[in-house]
């Protein structure tokens, strides 16, 4: 589905408010080809902006265009769009295979090609064994993979991925980051949102910072990264053997403190980027499996404080 020229997505002074509440202030941006990271703290308006950009909600002002055409309600354009929502909700009574088959068929893929495509997606996202299980029984990581699979199912050239790495284990995270980077290299226009800077940095250098419903800055990630390392970060790791992992991590550089709490290891580090970089190797060395990673505080908070002069 990728054409010769990358798809160009434009937001022209797009804004959305619900009554008195401004969900997204006036936002203009233009992206075309490659991965763009949309960074912002939780509640900054990333998800609403994503929905506006994907034509899922009507803007209170402004317009979103894909290659010069308004996206909202333009049914044919959705052949070119893939959307991975932030929400974990999936229709629990479908099996993984049924869900993908239905969505691929609805995307207009020929009937005879649906099954091979489903098989390919299930294999690519390591869901073949769970293909005939109902989605209600899928773990968070499996749900995340299925959400990515359905977004890519019809080979779209514009992809919206709202916090796509949430709840993934480190290995899947690493694979997903690689895949997203490659999608950008293939010439697709990929928008990825996150509230974790190191995650986005692994996918792209181009970022847009969202703060309090406004686009605060656009540019190269290195400029932002330089503001980060001196600030500490708290990371939570869910794993089957938290005590063993904690005793291993406490001996590592950059780890300032470790606590065990309800099946989780809570790690305090003063160098977030180095921590995220080293973590996969530590996990391999310790032989521990981690099911989920979450950042408990927000390393972007200090960046926004700096940029907004607060």
């Amino acid at each position: 589905m990728i054409g010769t020229a990358p798809a160009r997505l434009e937001a022209l002074e797009v804004g959305k408010w619900f009554g008195e509440v401004v969900a997204v202030g006036s936002c203009s941006l233009e992206v075309g080809g490659g991965v763009v990271g949309l960074l912002g703290q939780n509640g900054a308006g990333k998800t609403t902006l994503f929905k506006l950009l994907a034509g899922l909600i009507t803007p209170s002002r402004g317009e979103v265009r894909l290659d010069g055409q308004p996206l909202r309600d333009h049914v044919a354009l959705y052949r070119r769009v893939g959307f991975c929502p932030e929400s974990d909700a999936l229709p629990g009574w479908f099996t993984g295979r049924e869900f993908l088959s239905m969505l691929i068929r609805l995307a207009g893929v020929e009937r005879a090609r649906v099954k091979p495509r489903v098989d390919e997606l299930l294999e690519r996202f390591e869901l073949t064994d769970a293909a005939n299980r109902r989605l209600g029984g899928y773990s968070k990581g499996m749900r995340q993979k299925l959400k990515l699979a359905q977004a890519l199912a019809h080979d779209p050239d514009v992809l919206f991925m709202d916090e796509p790495l949430n709840g993934m284990d480190p290995v899947s995270r690493h694979q997903a980051i690689g895949a997203i980077r490659q999608l950008g290299e293939e010439g697709r226009t990929v928008l990825v949102s996150s509230h974790i800077l190191p995650e986005v940095e692994e996918m792209t250098r181009r970022i847009i910072l969202i703060h309090r419903s406004k686009v605060l800055a656009e540019g190269d990630v290195t400029e932002i990264r330089d503001l980060i390392p001196e600030y500490p970060t708290v990371v939570s790791l869910r794993c089957p053997q938290p005590r063993e992992l904690a005793s291993f991590l406490v001996r590592q550089n950059n780890v300032m403190g470790v606590e065990c709490d309800d099946g989780k290891v809570v790690v305090r580090t003063e160098h977030a980027l180095a921590f995220y970089r080293d973590l996969p190797q530590w996990l391999l060395d310790s032989g521990q499996a981690v099911e989920e990673i979450n950042t408990l505080d927000d390393d972007l908070e200090s960046v926004f404080a700096y940029l907004t002069d607060e």
Binding site: M1, V75, A76, R79, M102, I104, R105, L106, A107, G108, V109, E110, R113, R117, E120, L121, R124, L152, A153, H154, D155, A179, Q182, L183, E185, E186
Partner: peptide
């Protein structure tokens, strides 16, 4: 360069009747 996924072949939007039938 290897693609993340192969091309699934040509796509064309389903007619309203067919889309209704698939959803049903």
């Amino acid at each position: 360069m290897n693609r993340v996924l192969n091309n699934p072949g040509p796509t064309a939007p389903l007619s309203d009747v067919l889309a209704t039938a698939v959803v049903a």
